[in-house]
């Protein structure tokens, strides 16, 4: 086996608060290989963004990594700080967020932002950097890139801005891209363009991609494997087709059955009772047990097992083995 581009091992992120210490990320482990897209799904507050931010060293205080490792091509990076972290982030890791404006400087032209990033991380001359910037814009489908390079972010539409952000994330040729809800704010037709673009770049450049989204359709079409998070932990991890059509964790199964699927018409949707617990009020044992129809006394008493308990797939004492309702 080749070394994964990203390897996250037993990662724990904590936030000290007046009411006690919260754990938005709890014992999370996963790998992403070159040219692979790992989808990360889960309800709002499950810890998806917090995991992504911990990996790229962008946790907002007071959140911090308290244990576990983040390895980039085998090198530990979770303890890096300051200038070394910043350099590594720009060179080896690219980021794409939901709101493209958070990644763009409104006062600089997109050309200035791209050339600045390229000059900082690659050994090229000013004019080479400019040519690379134009090529990068061209690659992400900005029409007339050579003319548009002098434009400011506000002169672009939302979809075009997100393309610029992708160009910016990729221009220093990173090994890993973290895309946190990159298409959530976009329309269906633009979303399809951006997802197709991400897939193509991942395939052609061998980038490892962590794609955070709550849209199961996007996951099915784009991801190779999918990680399902619930209350800070990984509930399930596996090949995308397996997880969607043959979920092992009762939460994943419930999630799939509660998603309307066009091919299934007016069928009554399955409901998962209740809502995800807040971090300051986590139930005992497996955090999903109050909503779970398979829960036994053991689930209330013991924390859910590691993924290994179920072929490395699901963190559940009583995983499903039958096919779930959703089928392709």
């Amino acid at each position: 086996m080749t070394t994964p581009v990203l390897s996250v091992r037993d990662l724990v992120v904590e936030i000290p608060t007046r009411r006690g210490v919260l754990r938005p990320v709890d014992q999370v482990s996963y790998d992403i290989h070159a040219g692979e897209i790992l989808g990360v799904v889960g309800e709002s507050g499950a810890g998806k963004s917090m995991t992504g931010n911990a990996v790229i060293g962008l946790l907002d205080r007071p959140a911090r990594i308290v244990s576990g490792e983040v390895l980039l091509s085998g090198e530990p990076v979770h303890a890096l700080k300051g200038e070394r972290l910043r350099k590594l982030r720009g060179k080896k890791m690219g980021m794409i967020f939901q709101d493209p404006l958070t990644s763009l400087n409104p006062l600089l032209t997109i050309g200035e932002q791209l050339t600045e990033t390229i000059l900082e991380h690659l050994d090229v001359t000013q004019s080479e950097a400019r040519e690379r910037a134009i090529a990068a814009l061209d690659e992400v489908g900005i029409p007339a890139a050579r003319q548009r390079i002098g434009s400011y972010p506000h002169e672009f539409s939302g979809g075009m801005r997100q393309r610029v952000v992708i160009a910016l994330a990729l221009c220093a040729e990173p090994d890993l891209v973290i895309a946190d809800e990159p298409t959530t704010a976009l329309d269906v037709s633009v979303q399809a363009q951006i997802v197709a673009l991400l897939k193509r770049l991942c395939r052609e450049k061998g980038v490892a991609v962590m794609l955070v989204t709550h849209d199961m359709g996007v996951i099915a079409e784009a991801a190779d494997r999918v990680a399902v998070m619930y209350a800070g932990r990984l509930a399930e991890l596996g090949p995308v087709r397996e997880v969607i059509t043959n979920a092992r964790h009762p939460y994943t199964a419930g999630l799939m059955a509660s998603t309307p699927v066009a091919s299934q018409g007016h069928r009554r949707l399955r409901q998962i009772p209740g809502a995800m617990p807040r971090l300051d009020n986590l139930p005992s044992g497996c955090a999903f047990h109050p909503r779970c129809d398979r829960a036994e006394p053991r689930c209330r008493e013991e924390p859910g097992p590691s993924l290994e308990a179920c072929d490395g797939r699901a963190a559940c004492w009583f995983p499903l083995t039958e096919k779930t309702e959703v089928s392709a």
């Binding site: 539409s157 329309d187 037709s189 633009v190 399809a192 849209d215 099915a220 699927v261 091919s263 392709a328």
Partner: peptide, 24 residues
């Protein structure tokens, strides 16, 4: 037709869409 083709589908694993052209 374009909207339907572009909409992501949970049962369309690895589907390669020919994404719509242009924007509104």
């Amino acid at each position: 037709q374009m909207l339907f083709d572009a909409a992501p589908r949970m049962d369309a694993f690895g589907r390669e869409v020919d994404p719509p052209k242009g924007e509104i």
